[in-house]
Computed example of a mutant assay.
Amino acid sequence: MEQSNSLLYDAGKRSITATYVLWFFFGWVGAHRFYAGYKLSGALMLALACFGWYRVIAVEGAGFLALIFLGIWVLIDAALIPSMVRTSNLKTAAGIRSRAR
């Protein structure tokens, strides 16, 4: 039973390296947050990116403030990734423990 729980945890745990790779390439759309289990803030980042780029293209420059805010958020996330992944992995472990009982 313990080995089964360990296998479930290993299958469900998130990797800090994979999160940083997603952050580096797709951080501006919140992909790293979706991966780490933060769906609401990931959706907010995606919406902010879409809004900002739409306004830049359609209104010629009016969306730069949204994109600047998003860029600052993405940079701050670089420091928050280890704690986000750790929290996600703890939630995964707690879910496995509660199902095992």
Score class of each variant (00 low, 15 high):
F25V: 07
V56E: 15
G27T: 01
G95P: 04
L70V: 02
L48E: 07
A49F: 14
F26N: 02
A100C: 08
A11F: 08
R14L: 03
G63T: 02
I81V: 14
Y35D: 00
R14K: 14
V59S: 14
A18R: 12
I81N: 03
M84E: 04
S41I: 05
G12P: 03
S41Y: 03
I16D: 04
A49Q: 10
V85T: 03
R14H: 09
R101W: 05
V59T: 12
T87Q: 14
R97I: 03
D10V: 09
M1F: 10
S15N: 15
R33P: 00
A100M: 09
G30L: 00
G52S: 12
L48W: 06
W73A: 11
E2T: 10
L65A: 15
R55W: 11
R97F: 05
A66Q: 09
D10W: 14
A79Q: 08
Y9N: 01
W23L: 12
A79C: 08
L65R: 14
D77G: 05
L67Q: 09
L40I: 11
I72E: 07
R14V: 00
G71A: 11
L90H: 07
F24Y: 11
G63C: 07
S6K: 12
L40G: 12
G52F: 03
V85H: 02
F64L: 15
V85Q: 03
L22C: 05
F25Y: 08
A66Y: 09
L8E: 11
A36N: 08
G71P: 05
L65C: 13
W73V: 02
L65E: 14
R55I: 00
K13I: 03
H32P: 01
F69K: 06
L40T: 14
I57D: 09
E2W: 13
Y54F: 15
D77L: 05
V29D: 01
A31C: 06
F69C: 11
G37P: 02
G30R: 00
A94C: 05
V29L: 11
V74K: 09
A93Q: 10
R86Q: 15
S15K: 15
A31K: 04
L65Y: 13
E60M: 11
F24E: 06
A47C: 09
I57Q: 14
K39P: 02
F24R: 06
G27P: 02
L8F: 04
L90N: 09
A47F: 09
A93M: 12
G37M: 06
G52A: 11
L48H: 04
W28D: 05
A79V: 07
Y20F: 14
G63E: 01
L48R: 08
A62Q: 13
T19S: 14
S6R: 13
